[in-house]
Amino acid sequence: MAYEFRLLETGFHRAAFNMGLDEALLRSVAEGRSLPTLRFYGWAPPAVSIGYFQGLHEEVDAAACKTAGIDVVRRITGGGAVFHHHEVTYSIVLPLSHPLARPNILDSYRLLLGGIIEGLSILGIEAEFAPINDIIAGGKKISGNAQTRKLGCLLQHGTIILDVDVDRMFTVLKVPQEKTRGKLIEDIKSRVTSIKHCLPQSESMSFETLYATTIQSLKKGFAKALNLALVSSVPTEAELQLAEQLAQEKFSSQTWITLR
């Protein structure tokens, strides 16, 4: 018997709302008011998210972000800084008591990322799990992921890179002191790939078509790999209200953004 999961496709939103909605879904599932949930979403305007333990000013040129109209947000999950632009982002929330929630975080990554690996395979891309939290295709990173556990639930969110502009990325991300900008950009270009790069036939696709096609494949991939029965839905009014509240009071607040 398949596991019933709610499927949300919430479109493109500001960074603070996106993080607010992920936390609202976590709380809603934790309180038993919603089914375990798989959500797909995007970012408008583009954004930089940093991991819970990262120092804002060590990772991000906040002034450059402001000038370029790029949002900055701190996640509730660990991991590294991410420039969210041409990508599909997903989140998955389930109780820790659920059979798909493994006690060990690394085991959970391995299991849940099976959904993305299967989705990429449906698209025609052979990919594999690269511990701790990445998926690689042809030896290069195509997906980065982060997981936390709170209120008796597991939240994992991550990105599937559709297209990558490393030069633009490093107009807003800081370059570590020990590296030169040019060297770092070359390093990243050699270590990161994208769906557009892996699938030459997608070169001519618009971003909107590639985004929609990728989500279709990921839905099938999650359903197959994790044995999910996905029920298309929308966030509840209570979830949307809480997401707005968290976006304003937590994720947009300087206290939170500059926590470290």
Binding site: F53, G55, A81, T148, R260
Partner: peptide, 15 residues
């Protein structure tokens, strides 16, 4: 001391 970086620690608040 303050420890920062792109590591994971769960629960985060306990760190």
């Amino acid at each position: 001391l303050s420890i920062r970086g792109d590591f994971f620690a769960v629960p985060e608040e306990a760190f």
